[in-house]
Amino acid sequence: MRIHRGPAAVDPRVLLTAQVAVAIAIFAHPPRTALVLGGVLVAGLYLWTRPDWSHLRGPLRIAGGFLTVAPLVAAVQLTPPGIDLDGLVRAAVASARVLLVLLCGLLLSWSQSPRRMRIAVSGIIPGRPGRLAGVGVWVLATFVPHLRAEAHTLHRAWLLRCGFRRSTVQRLTTLGRVTLSALIERAEVLIRALLLRCLSWRPTSSDRPLMAGDVAVLLLSVVVAASPLLWS
């Protein structure tokens, strides 16, 4: 029997609830408290989840770059003095809140399989909308790693055959065209596999009763979500 530790041992629905609770707290608290609480939560979650940074690097690089540039762009004024300092601070705080929520979300979910994401979403949203959303999240989370693997394969083939000696325009157009057709092909392959393997809206449930660890995380989530009310 395999023993799960960290987030993998917690019910996926509870983990999703925890992510929502963290987002509520970080956005509802006043800036200073939100940033301190966010920092504490990130540190705590880091120690609990012990993440594999290779899983987090990609999303953080994209979101981090965007969130760093966004306040600078928001602060630019067309009239003198050219920069709105108050706006810069406001936008930077907003960016920091988003970054903290993103970090907490990534730390809680990095080890989650598409299957657990489906269970979480369809377990929290009731009825058909939940099942639909669950399948949507699952398909997306299943498809993206396949796509990345496909892109790596293409890139490797490109390098092995000295594609780097071609001009940038040729490189972009050829790789763009080939990647697009690989994407469509990959989608077809996935659809074929789902058809052959009888994709169902109501598969066997993976539900299990909530355990002590789940209840503890759930209680902490309630406290975190309610903290803006408790401290106001």
């Binding site: 399989s113 598409p114 299957r115 009888c198 169902s200 109501r202």
Partner: peptide, 27 residues
């Protein structure tokens, strides 16, 4: 590999039986 839809071997093998709506223990 064109048949794979899940991340791990066990989850992928379980995918089909789960779609048949079998009990968890049977799956």
């Amino acid at each position: 590999p064109d048949l794979f839809v899940e991340e791990t071997v066990a989850a992928d093998v379980a995918f089909g039986p789960e779609n048949l709506g079998l009990d968890r223990a049977v799956v």
